[in-house]
Amino acid sequence: MASGARLILILGGLLLIFVFFSIVWGISIYNEIVGLDEGVRAAWSQVENQYQRRYDLIPNLVETVKGYAKQEREVLIGVTEARASVGQLKVTQDILRDPKAFAQFQQAQDGLGAALSRLLVIVEKYPELKSNENFRDLQAQLEGTENRIAVARMQYNEKVQLYNTRIRRFPASIIASITGFNEVQYFKAAQGSEQAPRIQF
């Protein structure tokens, strides 16, 4: 009788210790995942910033090109429309975990990148525009921004890789699924957008 009670006590104690260490372990894993998730969020806001920067540059660029190359209506409208479709996107942190919304975001942004590189190609036909200092500044800003976008996307993908690997690997995956951390979307390399439009001058 006494020995049975003692056994239960020992088992109960062991169980308590096990539960205690599981909780401690769970908390540390949780904190680690939170840290990685923060990294993803920070990298994502860089991506958004750079895309916003490009978005803000376009009206000025279009106006300047219009002044010299009015007849290029199609290309100019193409840029304006692509910009409008980017403007319609509803971008929140939620899209990071929504494959469809994320693909949509990337498609719209890549479309704008492609429209812009078409614009910079037609500019070649207008020497006066090409030698305009204001235009050259805008072009430099656009090129710089495209490059920043490429860098921000790369850094974002790196952070996502760290995060995704962590939450998918057993046994951390248990904690991740209990606390609702799920996979985040990557940027896929797309034609036209990875390559900053490069113009010789």
């Binding site: 430099a140 710089g144 920043r148 921000a152």
Partner: peptide
């Protein structure tokens, strides 16, 4: 650190 800012030329 750099975020890819700057300019290119040829």
């Amino acid at each position: 650190f750099s975020g890819g800012g700057g300019a290119t030329g040829s």
